[in-house]
């Protein structure tokens, strides 16, 4: 690991009375892919929302590329950090074409060569140029997720936050999207944080991962520990056993 891309120190998040992220600390190196796993309500998506600046109610320290981040981020931050959401059906505006969706971030950041950038973003995610003026309902789930990834990439960020990017997709489409994400990372030296409930997906994509439960970090492990199925904590072990499938007892 060379430089630190993301460092989170004693992060706490509360919504009213419920304390959803408790004293969470971790660091992600530049060009690394880091997994966050846990059950619903473990706070993994909330961590991503804090990192991306969508959630402004938190305490602790968050530093991105060495710079400590305020609660309200500036424009330059969003150019560097982008997020891809879980549901490709819900994260694209139904009345805007692919072209509109991709042009908006460029307009916000005052980038001139929109034409070329949109064309490039589409070809990067493997969509034909003819898809540019389609509406989301004219695309399949996998194609929509590609558009969502293209939207994140059009600003050429260095950090991508991926919130369950393939869990709404069929396995064959999931394979295509995972391959795409892996290839893009290699090509552009991107840093990923991948939230997923699927340990096999995290094992495929990440070098290290953090298991969370009830907002706390339970165990950080490498992918080697994961594939050897030798976690240190009982909860991580339980999660691993549960993902292995159904077992009849007695």
């Amino acid at each position: 690991m060379t430089n630190t891309a993301i460092s989170v120190d004693r992060l706490n998040v509360s919504f009213g009375d419920s304390h959803v992220v408790k004293d969470l600390s971790f660091t992600v190196g530049q060009g690394e892919s880091y997994g966050l796993v846990g059950e619903s309500g473990s706070g993994k998506s909330t961590v991503l929302r804090v990192l991306s600046g969508l959630n402004r109610e938190w305490s602790g320290n968050v530093a991105i590329a060495g710079a400590v981040q305020p609660k309200v981020r500036d424009k330059a931050f969003y150019r560097n950090v982008q997020m891809v959401f879980q549901d490709p059906y819900g994260s694209l505006h139904p009345k805007k074409t692919v072209d509109d969706t991709l042009a908006e971030p460029l307009a916000i950041h005052g980038i001139r060569d929109a034409e070329a950038r949109i064309g490039k973003a589409l070809s990067d995610v493997g969509l034909p140029a003819s898809f540019r003026f389609r509406y989301p309902h004219q695309l399949s789930g996998g194609q929509r997720q590609r558009v969502a990834i293209a939207r994140a990439l059009v600003l050429e960020p260095s950090i991508l936050l991926l919130d369950e990017p393939t869990s709404a997709l069929d396995v064959s489409i999931q394979a295509e999207v995972l391959n795409l994400l892996a290839a893009l990372r290699q090509e552009r030296k991107l840093t990923y944080i991948l939230v997923s409930h699927d340990l096999a997906v995290v094992g495929h994509m990440c070098e290290r991962l953090l298991v969370m439960q009830f907002g706390r970090a339970v165990e950080e492990m490498t992918v080697e520990t994961l594939s050897a199925r030798e976690p240190q904590t009982a909860y991580a072990q339980q999660l691993l056993t549960a993902s292995a499938g159904f077992r009849r007892t007695g």
Partner: peptide, 13 residues
């Protein structure tokens, strides 16, 4: 095309 912990692959078919 399922990722598999026991058989890690560079690229999924």
């Amino acid at each position: 095309c399922l990722p598999d912990l026991d058989h890690p692959r560079e690229k999924l078919p």
